[in-house]
């Protein structure tokens, strides 16, 4: 049993976000989740080795982002012309071909949001490993919370597969290193975000010294 440190004071409560039922926030053994007595929704969970995992996966995600932005996802040979695709080129193409709003939206959902999430997690969680709070860590954590629903890398990955099937009839298309790195990035992002529970992160931030 390794419960995370609770802030001083109390009693500590937890409220179900779905049905508003009030619970006592009791400590949990690692790997267990507390569920709402009324509706069964997950209240909070104690992730095993949470800080280490959140840090490891978000640092891996940041490294993979460099690879994703340096190598093409798809390479297409048609009519003697070779074109290639990465995240920035898809956003740029939309901006130049008459739909700047779509290009900005694509860049936001697939470049900005994952960067805010992974970068924010490292910024907040790395100092927490030694019990310290980075300057502005709470503001960063708030922004991570706001951007999380808009992270759409897995949707973009599905888009790449659909495009590949669309184009395979008219051209010779193959995967580049960027595609595999993007697949790994998707897994790392999911593992990083799921690595530490929201309540644990905030409790640790409240306990941590500046």
């Amino acid at each position: 049993m390794h419960p995370w440190p609770k802030p001083p004071g109390g009693p500590h409560y937890s409220v179900c976000h779905f049905c508003d039922t009030l619970h006592d926030a009791t400590a949990l053994p690692e790997g267990k989740a507390a569920r709402c007595k009324c509706c069964g929704a997950v209240l909070y969970q104690n992730r095993p080795a949470s800080l280490a995992r959140a840090n490891a996966f978000s640092i891996s995600a940041l490294i993979l982002m460099v690879v994703v932005h340096s190598f093409p996802f798809l390479v297409m040979d048609a009519a003697g012309i070779r074109t290639s695709l990465n995240l920035a080129s898809a956003a740029k193409a939309l901006i130049h071909e008459g739909s700047p709003m779509l290009g900005i939206a694509l860049a936001f959902f697939t470049i900005v949001t994952p960067l805010v999430l992974a970068g924010g997690l490292v910024y907040v969680c790395a100092p927490l490993l030694i019990g310290k709070k980075a300057p502005g860590a709470m503001i960063v954590a708030k922004w991570m919370n706001k951007t999380e629903p808009w992270n759409m890398i897995e949707v973009f990955l599905l888009g790449v597969l659909v495009s590949l099937l669309k184009l395979s009839k008219v051209a010779d298309v193959h995967f580049g290193i960027g595609f595999w790195a993007f697949g790994a990035l998707m897994l790392c992002m999911a593992a990083a975000v799921a690595g530490i529970d929201r309540d644990e992160l905030w409790d640790r931030l409240e306990v941590a010294k500046r």
Binding site: A79, A93, S99, L102, G103, L106, L158, G159, S163, L167
Partner: peptide
């Protein structure tokens, strides 16, 4: 809801890749 964005991403990808001059171009 977010999965509905897939068609928009497909448009972005096709517009970026299919710029083959007189042979074939795609615009959003």
């Amino acid at each position: 809801g977010r999965w509905s964005m897939v068609d928009i991403f497909v448009v972005g990808i096709l517009v970026a890749l299919v710029q083959l001059g007189n042979y074939m171009t795609i615009t959003p």
